[in-house]
Write a protein that binds this DNA or RNA. Structure first.
Length: 195
DNA sequence: CGGCCGATCCACT
DNA sequence: GTGGATCGGCCGA
């Protein structure tokens, strides 16, 4: 069942990041359906969060998408070669977002393998935000798409994600953010217990 | 307009 | 564990 607008528009981005674990991210690109269970997320808490692109209320052509209403896709290019996919949360003009860092591929696996080439190492797959977007066919030009639309949406797969299977800790790659880099805004569902 | 840098990934040692 | 790839976005001049 597709998640409703109200799921994304809630005020606490950290809660949304936690609850996105176990949900199914579904994407139709190039006529191909690919989906995966979300296993790792990070919250970016808007204008007060030094690690966020919207820190200090900054608005640019790129970050403007973060100010859209909850349930919008924010995708941007990192290191000149990787698209990173985020879920915009909270109401319009509050630039909160959740980065999807890892998924467990579910449907369209052969399509994902074709897109990512030989990115299958030690049994892991689609772990890492750049690889997730690549496997799902998401490009930074897709930034701004509605998550209640027909290209990208998220479903409640009916999976239970108990607290004792969830790791919570600091975010990755945000050392530049000072004290905010230490905030426990990263959630990881321990995949080894899923099977 | 020039220069710096990044919410990363992979090959290689 | 480490360094290179690679280029859009952002800022300062």
């Amino acid at each position: 069942m597709k998640l409703a607008r109200s799921f994304y528009e809630r005020p606490d981005v950290v809660t949304v990041a936690r609850e996105l674990l176990g949900k199914e991210l579904c994407v139709v690109m190039d006529g191909q359906l690919t989906t995966g269970i979300i296993t790792e997320t990070e919250a970016y808490a808007g204008i007060t969060d030094r690690a966020s692109h919207a820190f200090g209320g900054k608005r640019t052509a790129r970050t403007e998408i973060m100010y859209a209403r909850g349930g919008t896709a924010y995708v941007y290019l990192c290191y000149g070669m990787h698209s990173l996919f985020n879920v915009v949360t909270n109401v319009k003009d509050v630039p909160h977002a959740v980065l999807i860092r890892a998924i467990l591929p579910r449907k369209g696996i052969s399509t994902m393998k074709a897109r990512t080439g030989k990115n299958v190492i030690n049994g892991a797959f689609s772990n890492g935000p750049g690889k997730v977007a690549k496997a799902l066919g998401i490009h930074y030009s897709h930034s701004g798409l509605d998550l209640l639309g027909k290209a990208i949406w998220i479903s409640d797969a009916g999976l239970e994600v108990p607290d004792d299977q969830v790791l919570c800790g600091p975010r990755i790659g945000v050392d530049y953010a000072g004290d905010d880099a230490k905030l426990p805004y990263r959630f990881c569902w321990n995949v080894s217990v899923i099977k």
